[in-house]
Design a protein around this nucleic acid. Structure first.
Length: 456
RNA sequence: GUGAUUGUAGCUCAGCUGGUUAGAGCGCUGGUUUGUGGCACCAGAGGUCGCCGGUUCGAACCCGGUCUUUCACCCCA
């Protein structure tokens, strides 16, 4: 057997030390914010039973599920007839588990299984990888992290306002100043369908409108015709779609007037107004937040507020999004659980911060000092110092083998360690320690307490 | 899933219409310097040209397949 070059599966990535430092910075910032707002962390297994996963994401989604072959003789249940009927008939007999496709469905499963133990409203966040057998592209991977926070078991619009606050807090910490949180309400879209004389067709309307900034109004109009919208309907829609965006107050006034004959639409507008009002009471301003009545988001289960966050001037799609849903757990036999949730796209946020050069001070090693030494006795002496340093809470390491002093310094330099302690015969004789600042090149000899004072 | 696209040293990339021994910069190793890293100079190592097959006297270069990368569609974070 020949030795082949190692590789990793398509659409997966390794994260080296620098990437991990940066990813952890992103994740810690987000976790910090979630905890500050009272969310508790949850984890679920990488694999779920296929029955839990299938049928939740549409036909497309089922195809994108990674299935896990049964252990042992996975063909033992398969008959010749199954084989002749092809994959759909074979699948349940050779696979009963799959990798999770998102965090929402496992969460719904969790809520149903633990409904009697949970305290509602239940606020949880969950940060774990998910897998999709998609074709990879820039910013799209087969394994990627989702970072979800949801509140279930309450209709309160305080949750919506808090989501806006959390998004703003996270992005402010990252130093992002050019981004837009687009906000809409699914009820406004429902009302829109009624107002243009196509009631009940908001689903089709959403799918088409969602492509507006991508393909333009003319193409969207064609698609609407194909989906059975009348000429009159698209003519009524046009002024709303082509309306130049101005302030949130102006947009709200425009749509409140427009929706006056639609009960649902009016409720949508009222909810939006209420969210903004709560945001204000919570001390949040409307900066970065834009009411976009054309924001649809493809997902069919949203029923109230919808959010999407885009960073301006970068060629990367949305970095965060979410919305309110009425019936998260219905498919698992627990109807009436509503909630609101959103998600940060960690991988995309990474790309954005990278592209904008916003990762600055993470290159420095967390190791404060490295002990260099000139021989076996000196190294042994250094081990004692190392122990004392660590007991004092100073991140430190010793060059772990006897080596040329140059090699040891190069190592410390490459790891961007701030200080070096040099142990030689002179230090051992005098009991003093030579401490060198590797950034400035300055060096002085002192006792251990002096070193501690310098390093803390 | 459909249609394109990419692959040469650890990294970024040259390599002419197919023609001797595939190059550069950076990085790496050693030395100038056996008590000191970054800078400089000197020397050196490192490549089955993604993989498999085909055409040809001869393939990094042409053809087919495959894997990978990137892009558009679909969908999505």
């Amino acid at each position: 057997m020949s030795i082949s070059k190692p590789s990793i599966p398509k659409g997966t990535r390794d994260f080296g030390p620098i990437e991990m430092a940066r990813r952890n910075y992103i994740l810690e910032t987000i976790k910090d914010t979630f905890r500050l707002f009272g969310f508790q962390q949850l984890e679920t297994p990488a694999m779920e039973s296929l029955a839990t996963l299938t049928g939740k994401y549409g036909d497309e989604g089922d195809q994108l599920l990674f299935k896990i072959l049964n252990s042992g003789d996975y063909l033992k249940q398969v008959t010749m007839e199954d084989l002749a009927q092809g994959a759909p008939s074979m699948l349940p007999k050779i696979s009963e588990k799959g990798l999770r496709y998102d965090l929402t469905v496992p969460f719904a499963r969790f809520v149903v299984m633990n409904r009697n133990e949970l305290v509602f409203p239940f606020k949880r966040f969950q940060i774990q990888p998910v897998w999709r057998a998609d074709r990879p592209q820039r910013g799209r991977y087969r394994e990627f992290y989702q970072c979800d926070a949801d509140v279930v078991g309450t209709d309160s619009l305080v949750c919506e306002a808090e989501i806006l606050l959390m998004i703003k807090r996270v992005f402010a910490t990252f130093g992002l100043e050019e981004y837009t949180i687009k906000v809409n309400n699914r009820k406004i879209l429902t009302g829109l369908a009624e107002v243009i004389g196509a009631p009940g067709k908001e689903q089709e309307l959403c799918v088409a409108i969602d492509k507006l900034d991508k393909i333009g109004w003319e193409k969207v109009r064609e698609e609407l015709f194909e989906r059975g919208f009348s000429v009159e309907a698209t003519e009524k829609l046009a002024p709303m779609v082509l309306r130049q965006p101005d302030g949130n107050a102006e947009s709200i006034a425009f749509f409140r007037d427009l929706m006056k004959d639609s009960a649902v639409g009016s409720r949508g507008v009222s909810e939006l107004v209420e969210v903004f009002s709560l945001l204000d009471k919570l001390g949040g301003e409307q900066t970065f937040i834009q009411f976009d009545p054309m924001l649809a988001r493809g997902l069919s289960y949203y029923t109230g507020a919808i959010f999407e966050v885009k960073v301006n001037n970068v060629s990367i799609g949305s970095v965060s999004g979410g919305g309110r849903y009425d019936n998260l757990t219905g498919v698992f036999g627990l109807p009436g659980v509503s909630g609101v949730g959103f998600s940060f796209g960690v991988d995309r946020i990474y790309d954005v911060l990278n592209e904008l050069g916003l990762f600055q001070d993470l290159s420095e090693s967390p190791v404060k000092v490295m002990i260099a030494h000139f021989g076996p006795e000196e190294m042994a002496f250094g081990l004692g110092i190392l122990s004392k340093l660590r007991n004092a809470g100073i991140a430190s390491e010793i060059f772990p083998e006897v080596a040329k002093i140059k090699k040891q310094f190069v190592y410390a330099d490459k790891k961007q360690i701030s200080y070096a302690i040099v142990i030689g015969s002179e230090e051992m004789k005098s009991g003093k320690i030579t401490l060198k600042n590797l950034k400035s090149g300055e060096q002085q000899t002192m006792d251990f307490d002096g070193v501690l004072a310098e390093l803390t």
